[in-house]
């Protein structure tokens, strides 16, 4: 991709511009927008979790427009097969069966965003196929390997329904750099505007109003590499990140306590090395997005919950209450782990 990429200094103003535009299109989701943009900067896949009708799809479409580039979209259903993502089988005009590239391949290897709607409706076989696409950004189809260097997977799942849904396996969850909660906007003005302002009624026109390709997708990989190489993470910060992750794995030794939970049995696992890597990548992106050349504890704190919460697996007795317990555990870790430590 030798198209003209913006200069590094130009990127930051483009990021601010994209953030402002997205906030004008999707009201009351400034934190989700911020986190999605950080995932774009860190080249991590994102899982959006939220209630129905909170604008998850609109948000992702808006981000896709801001990034530009080809994007493919799949709706998760119970009968979706892994091959349905790769191949499109149909009858041609002459009535002969034909196999053509499916959603993942039809845009070619330049695919920038693969948007998987309602991922928890698809079966585990589909999740398994996604593992390779997400981890290696490659697929094997038509007897050759396809590589998607610019690919970023966005998936969403709604949390209301439990029927005919399949919980994402731990391995699939771990490959998402972040799980971003999308909640109903809290501000009254935002909610009134979303209901009454006709601008928000036509999603296509709303998204069409965004300037396309503010953050050109073909330059993002290089920008991400520059951010990761350029933003400093000091030994004290490395120690802090390690202490936090360690506390999440072994809350008893770290002296954490959460109301109504036996700390020895609360956490069953989580915080993989991949998770720590994602945390560091996103924290560096957050520091860069704030215009700094070094990661500060507040960057870690800003992104820790979205990066770590969905990778933390609780004991069977506590899994049903994870919506309350995991944030409480993370809060306890930040309240307890000293920084800068001796």
């Amino acid at each position: 991709m030798l198209q003209d990429a913006p200069a590094p200094a130009d990127w930051l103003s483009r990021l601010r511009d994209a953030e402002a535009q997205l906030n004008s299109v999707v009201l009351g989701q400034s934190r989700a927008i911020r986190l999605i943009l950080l995932s774009v900067l860190a080249r991590g896949h994102v899982l959006l979790a939220g209630d129905v009708g909170t604008g998850k799809t609109t948000l992702l479409r808006a981000v896709a427009r801001a990034i530009g580039g080809p994007y493919a979209r799949v709706e998760g259903t119970v009968d979706l097969l892994p091959t349905d993502l790769i191949y499109d089988a149909h009858l041609d005009d002459d009535g002969k069966p034909r196999i053509e590239p499916g959603p993942a391949l039809s845009q070619g290897e330049d695919l920038s965003i693969f948007f998987f709607n309602e991922i928890n409706r698809a079966r585990p076989q589909v999740h398994a196929m996604l593992l390779r696409l997400m981890a290696e950004r490659s697929l094997t189809a038509f007897r050759r390997e396809y590589r998607f260097p610019h690919l970023q997977v966005f998936a969403d799942r709604n949390q209301i329904e439990r029927d005919e849904t399949f919980e994402l396996p731990a391995a699939a969850r771990d490959r998402f750099a972040m799980e971003i909660p999308v909640t109903v906007p809290t501000a009254r003005d935002d909610r009134i505007a979303l209901a009454f302002d006709t601008r928000f009624h036509d999603t296509d026109a709303l998204i069409g109003g965004l300037s396309a390709g503010v953050l050109p997708y073909h330059g993002l990989n290089r920008l991400a590499a520059q951010i990761q190489a350029g933003v400093h993470a000091s030994p004290a910060l490395q120690r802090y990140v390690f202490d936090l992750c360690d506390a999440l794995r072994d809350p008893v030794r770290a002296g954490l306590s959460v109301q109504d939970a036996d700390m020895a049995r609360l956490v069953q696992g989580g915080v993989s090395p991949r998770g720590m890597q994602a945390l560091v990548r996103v924290a560096r992106a957050a520091a860069w997005a704030d215009g700094r050349d070094a990661v500060l504890p507040q960057d870690v704190r800003e992104v820790f919950a979205p990066v770590m919460a969905h990778r933390t697996f609780l004991g069977p007795a506590y899994e049903a209450r994870r919506e309350i317990l995991v944030p409480a555990l993370i809060r306890a870790a930040f309240d307890t782990i000293p920084v800068p430590a001796e």
Binding site: L296, P297, Q298, R301, T336, P338, V339
Partner: peptide
């Protein structure tokens, strides 16, 4: 820093 943590009741960072 530790004294500020103790006075705040939890870990205090610049933010």
């Amino acid at each position: 820093h530790r004294a500020l943590d103790a006075a705040f009741g939890r870990v205090l960072i610049g933010a």
